[in-house]
Every structure is written in structure tokens, then in C-alpha cells.
Amino acid sequence: MTTGGDWDAAWSAALDAMELEADEVERMLRHRDMPERLPAEAPGFTPPPGIGPLPAALEERARRLVQRQLDLSRELSIAIAGNRQQARLVARLHREADQSVPVYLDNRT
């Protein structure tokens, strides 16, 4: 387990990593209509092992970060629902186009 100043530094580094991931999720949400700019793999956070409990001095920062992550989670849910709705609409349009009646024109006159 980390102790003393190393403990605070380890937690600061962990919160920094979490904030960078939140920044990446926000960037992906802003550019969701431009898939060429999105990374091939979604970010993922793994907490460092053995850093112990959160230091009291970092509690407010951690609370803000948790709220930010909850807000991003809601935004992602809304974006996913919107994408599903668009996918259903596109599928329906393709089905309707596939079921159209062929039209033949005889121009031998």
C-alpha cells in the first residue's frame, strides 16, 4: 500500500487519468457525427492497485469527477437511444425501398 506523500500523488495521478478519460468521452460525444475522428477503441480506466482510501484533501475533486461521469453517462445513454432510433428509421426506409413495385416502360413505339 502507498503511504504519505506517495499516497496523495498516487490518488492525484488516478484522478488525472479519470479526468483524461472523461475529456475523451466528451470529445467523442462532440464529434459523434464524424466517425472518422473517433478512436477505434473506447477508453477504459483501471484503478491502480494498492493506493488505499481516498485522501480527504482530494474528496471534493473526486466528487466533481463522479458527477461529471454521471452526466456523461446520461449523455451517452441519450446518444445511444438517438442512434438506435436512426438505425430503425434507416432499416424501415430500406425495407420500403426493397418492397417497391418495379416499373417497366416499353419504348418500342
Results as ranks from 00 to 15, higher is better:
1 M>G: 01
2 T>Q: 07
4 G>Q: 14
4 G>H: 13
5 G>E: 13
6 D>L: 08
6 D>K: 08
7 W>H: 15
7 W>A: 08
7 W>T: 05
9 A>Q: 12
9 A>E: 10
10 A>L: 10
11 W>K: 01
12 S>D: 02
15 L>A: 00
15 L>K: 02
16 D>A: 09
17 A>W: 13
18 M>D: 00
18 M>I: 05
18 M>Q: 10
19 E>R: 03
20 L>G: 12
21 E>H: 14
21 E>K: 10
22 A>L: 08
23 D>C: 00
23 D>F: 03
24 E>V: 14
24 E>R: 15
24 E>W: 11
26 E>Y: 01
26 E>K: 05
28 M>Y: 05
29 L>K: 10
29 L>R: 08
30 R>I: 10
30 R>C: 11
31 H>K: 11
31 H>N: 13
31 H>L: 15
32 R>A: 14
32 R>P: 05
32 R>G: 06
33 D>K: 06
34 M>A: 15
35 P>V: 03
35 P>G: 02
36 E>W: 06
36 E>A: 15
38 L>E: 04
38 L>V: 08
41 E>N: 11
42 A>M: 14
44 G>N: 08
44 G>V: 08
45 F>A: 00
47 P>R: 15
47 P>L: 06
48 P>T: 05
48 P>C: 00
49 P>A: 10
49 P>C: 03
51 I>F: 02
51 I>L: 07
51 I>D: 01
52 G>D: 05
53 P>F: 09
53 P>Q: 09
54 L>C: 09
58 L>S: 00
60 E>L: 15
60 E>Y: 13
60 E>C: 08
60 E>P: 04
61 R>P: 04
61 R>G: 04
64 R>I: 05
64 R>D: 02
66 V>F: 14
66 V>A: 14
67 Q>P: 08
67 Q>T: 15
68 R>H: 10
69 Q>C: 07
70 L>G: 06
70 L>D: 12
70 L>S: 10
72 L>P: 12
72 L>A: 10
73 S>W: 04
73 S>A: 06
75 E>R: 11
75 E>D: 10
76 L>W: 00
76 L>P: 02
77 S>W: 01
77 S>P: 00
78 I>A: 03
78 I>N: 03
78 I>P: 00
80 I>R: 11
82 G>I: 01
83 N>L: 12
84 R>E: 08
86 Q>C: 05
87 A>Y: 07
88 R>N: 12
88 R>M: 11
89 L>F: 02
90 V>Q: 07
90 V>A: 11
91 A>V: 09
92 R>T: 06
93 L>Q: 13
94 H>F: 05
94 H>R: 14
94 H>I: 13
95 R>M: 07
95 R>I: 04
99 Q>M: 15
99 Q>H: 15
101 V>H: 03
102 P>H: 01
103 V>G: 00
103 V>N: 00
104 Y>W: 14
104 Y>R: 09
106 D>S: 10
109 T>N: 02
